[in-house]
Amino acid sequence: MSARRPSRYSWGGDEHLVVQLDEAMSLEVNFAATAMTRALADRQLAGVADICPANASFLVRFDPDVIAPDVLEAQVREVEREVESAPSLALRTRIVEVPVWYDDPYTNETAARFRDRHQRPEGNDLEFAAAENGLASTEEFIARHSGSPWLTSMVGFVAGLPFLYQMVSRERQLQVPKYLRPRTDTPPLTVGHGGCFACVYSVRGAGGYQMFGVTPAPIFDPTQTLGDFADFMVFFRPGDLVKFTAIDERRYREIGEEVSAGTFRFRQQEVEFRLDDFLAAPDEYNAALLEVLDGR
C-alpha cells in the first residue's frame, strides 16, 4: 500500500468519532477503511453502537458513558497500525448483476420536471453525462457504465442506498457534477451518478445525482417478501461487487412480474476479490470476475 498522509481523527460531538483516511477517493483507501472497520468490529468493544464504513473514511457512534473517548481513540489507532502493517488485500464478497433500463421514460420524465435545477436545460442527464466525459454518444456512455464492475464503497444516505465506485483506472472513471440544486423527488430504484460515484436510490425522496435509468429489482424491502431479503431488509453491504447490465423495456416488465410474484432473485456469485491482483491487471481481472458471475 502506498504511503499516504496520516489519518485525521475528529470528534462529532460527544457520541461520534470520525476517521478520515484520505480526502480523495481510491480503491486502496476504501479497502483500508473496510479493513479497519472490520477489525474494529471484531474487537466487540462495549459502548460502540455503530461502525459505519464510508468511501475514504469511517464513523463510529459510541456511548461515552460506557467507553471513554480517549479509550476508544486508542483502540482505533491500534487497529489502524495493525491494518497498516498487514494490509488486508483480499475481500470475501459476492458479485451481483443489477439489470438497468437506461434512458427509460420514467427517469426522463423526472429529469424534465427538475430541469430548472440542472446545468443544461436541453436534453437529459445521460446526454449531459456523455458530453461531460467526452463521449460521442449515450450508447458509448452506457457501454462504459455497464462494461466494468463496481465496488460498493459505502451504504447509506437513506436505508440501503449503495455508493458504487467503478473498478477502472482513474483516467477512465466516469465523472459528473451533481444537480445545481437537489431535486425534491427521485423515483425509487433510479440509477444515479455524482462525482465519481454511482448509486441506486433505494427509496423515493430527494436527490442531487444525475439520473441514467431504473432497475426493476428492489434493493430495500422492509416487508422482507423477496428471497434475497429473508435475513435482512437491506440488500447491499460494503464490499459487494456490482455489474450493471443494460436491459430493454420488455425485460424490465418481465423482471417486474417476477418481483410481483415474489420469485425474483438477483443473479449473484460468491467471489474473493484480491486488490493486488486487480491493480496488476485490472481489465483481465474484471473479465475473470464477470466469468464468475456467469458461472464459468
Binding site: E15, Y165, G195, C196
Partner: peptide, 21 residues
C-alpha cells in the same frame, strides 16, 4: 477539489454524518 469529491468547495468524498452534525 480532491478526486471524487465533486466540484463545489463545500463538497467532500461522501462520508458518514454524525447525529447533530
Amino acid at each position: 477539489q480532491p478526486f471524487g469529491a465533486g466540484s463545489d468547495l463545500s463538497n467532500i468524498v461522501d462520508a458518514g454524518y454524525p447525529l447533530g452534525s
